[in-house]
């Protein structure tokens, strides 16, 4: 059950997409997201969809995994669709019942919204599936380094992010273990009334917090012992270096997005 959480879950592989420079991947993903939300014609979405599909095929990430990352947001999708359907409207009324009015505009809007969100989630999942969390934070640090000029603690933030990402699997494992242990003592976690269910969480949350604090303290001590003093003057084991592949990948994505924007302007 807990294993279904896919945030920052990396799916190891050796495809072109996996090997691409993470900084370029982030920029391309951002481009995709901006394009998806800026464009409002059918063709923008089709081009975006083709792009995402192409990346998926190149990355050899099984469709099943992508479906897994989509499943949790299904309720949100449904909710947005219904809201758009009911509250966005134009004159072309399709169906009317008392105060509820379904219009062509609303229908179009809700379909667009669903497709956009699906592409957004799939696109960003492809980024996290093909990039290890460590590389991802390295890339974010590198992309944000200009902010150092205004005294923004870029390195510290990146370090906090890598630590957080690094400990997600550990804490999930720990939660699983604590849950098993309490279940072995007869705790019921998945039945009963709301209050009972909340109460049933105490035997899990208390040990989990205790161990999270203990881990944090141990990690802090270990970092101190290795003389960690922040980012100044630190060199890296893995240097991010952009190569021909990355520029080509970026150019292809850029062309796709430029095409989508052009189509969007022309179709108006």
């Amino acid at each position: 059950m807990l294993k279904d959480i896919t945030i920052g879950q990396y799916f190891p592989g050796d495809s072109v997409i996996h090997r691409m420079d993470p900084r370029f991947k982030i920029v391309c993903t951002l481009l995709l997201i901006v394009t998806l939300f800026a464009g409002n014609s059918l063709w923008t979405l089709v081009i975006g969809g083709v792009f995402v599909l192409l990346v998926q095929i190149l990355s050899r990430i099984p469709g099943k995994l992508l479906w897994k990352s989509l499943r949790p947001i299904l309720p949100i999708l449904l909710f947005t669709a219904v809201l758009n359907l009911l509250f966005v409207g134009d004159d072309e009324v399709l169906w009317e019942w008392q105060f509820i009015k379904l219009t062509m505009g609303g229908l179009q809007m809700s379909v667009f919204m669903i497709v956009r969100i699906i592409l957004l989630i799939v696109g960003s999942s492809l980024l996290t599936y093909t990039t290890s969390p460590i590389l991802l934070t390295d890339a974010i640090e590198s992309l944000m380094s200009p902010l150092k000029g205004i005294k923004f603690p870029v390195h510290e933030m990146a370090m906090m992010m890598s630590i957080a990402l690094r400990f997600i699997p550990t804490l999930i494992e720990e939660t699983d273990k604590i849950m098993s242990a309490q279940k072995a003592r007869g705790a019921t976690l998945d039945s009963g009334k709301v209050m009972e269910r909340i109460r049933a969480l105490i035997p899990i949350l208390v040990p989990l917090f205790v161990s999270a604090f203990r881990r944090a303290e141990e990690l802090a001590t270990a970092m101190e012992c290795r003389c960690y003093r922040g980012g100044e003057g630190r060199t890296r084991l893995r240097q991010l270096k952009a190569g021909a592949r990355d520029y080509i990948g970026f150019a292809v994505s850029f062309l796709f997005m430029a095409g989508a924007v052009t189509v969007n302007i022309l179709s108006k």
Binding site: K177, I178, S180, A181, R185, G186, P203, P207, S211
Partner: peptide
């Protein structure tokens, strides 16, 4: 649940599962 009462399992490092205010109440869980 009945099976779990008849087969007790103590995991490795079980001290990390203690959660109650007193030892008595923890054993009573």
């Amino acid at each position: 649940r009945d099976v779990r009462f008849r087969v007790g399992l103590v995991f490795q490092y079980p001290e990390y599962q203690l959660f109650e205010e007193t030892v008595y109440r923890d054993i009573a869980f």
